[in-house]
């Protein structure tokens, strides 16, 4: 969990292009950005913030493979070991007939698994405590936030005014 009662200074920008150049400037000045909050995904922001590519797809592949194997092994076990039944003189192990369900379970396991993983690693669920600085962030404001515990606040304020932040506010989280 987050430490309680951290002081945060954040600035709100009106445009994602202004935000991008502000983030670039923050990097140049070696300011330690806590996080950036935006109303929609801003492309090109991730490398500036040093965010590595999401590994969610690897998890998705693993879940999918588990789904494929579950379906294949279960149907094979049922039809060759547990209760073999002859359907229209076909072999017990009728692989082509297993393919549709193997496919469906691959997709099902992968999707459900990835969605659960997504919400878990993001710490998002009904009633979870997330850092919410300003109501306009989900509307039309782009926010850069800094922790002010061990930082020169005046330097941050100068940074905001020089990069065109519309407003600068503090919050305790």
């Amino acid at each position: 969990m987050e430490n309680q009662n951290k002081e945060v200074l954040y600035g709100l920008y009106d445009d994602e292009e202004v935000l991008m150049s502000a983030v670039k400037k923050a990097n140049e000045e070696h300011l330690d950005i806590m996080d950036v909050y935006t109303p929609f995904p801003v492309h090109g922001l991730d490398p500036l913030l040093g965010l590595s590519e999401s590994r969610l797809h690897i998890a998705g592949f693993i879940y999918g493979a588990i789904g494929t194997l579950t379906a294949f092994l279960f149907m094979t076990w049922v039809f060759t070991r547990d209760w073999p039944i002859i359907f229209g003189g076909k072999p017990y192990f009728s692989f082509p007939a297993f393919v549709p369900i193997m496919f469906e379970l691959t997709v099902l396991f992968s999707s459900v698994g990835m969605v659960i993983t997504f919400y878990t690693i993001c710490g998002l669920w009904p009633g979870s405590k997330t850092i919410r600085l300003n109501d306009r962030i989900t509307d039309d404001k782009f926010c850069i936030a800094f922790e002010t515990d061990n930082t020169d606040v005046q330097k941050l304020k100068d940074f905001f005014s020089s990069t065109g932040a519309g407003s600068v506010e503090t919050a305790t989280i």
């Binding site: 996080d35 950036v36 909050y37 935006t38 109303p39 929609f40 995904p41 801003v42 922001l45 991730d46 913030l49 965010l51 999401s54 969610l56 997504f118 919400y119 690693i121 993001c122 998002l124 669920w125 009904p126 009633g127 979870s128 405590k129 997330t130 850092i131 919410r132 600085l133 962030i137 989900t138 926010c143």
Partner: peptide, 12 residues
């Protein structure tokens, strides 16, 4: 789910 628009969340 208490969504807050964090950059990492958007990326994921």
């Amino acid at each position: 789910f208490s969504w807050n628009g964090s950059a990492k969340h958007w990326q994921r």
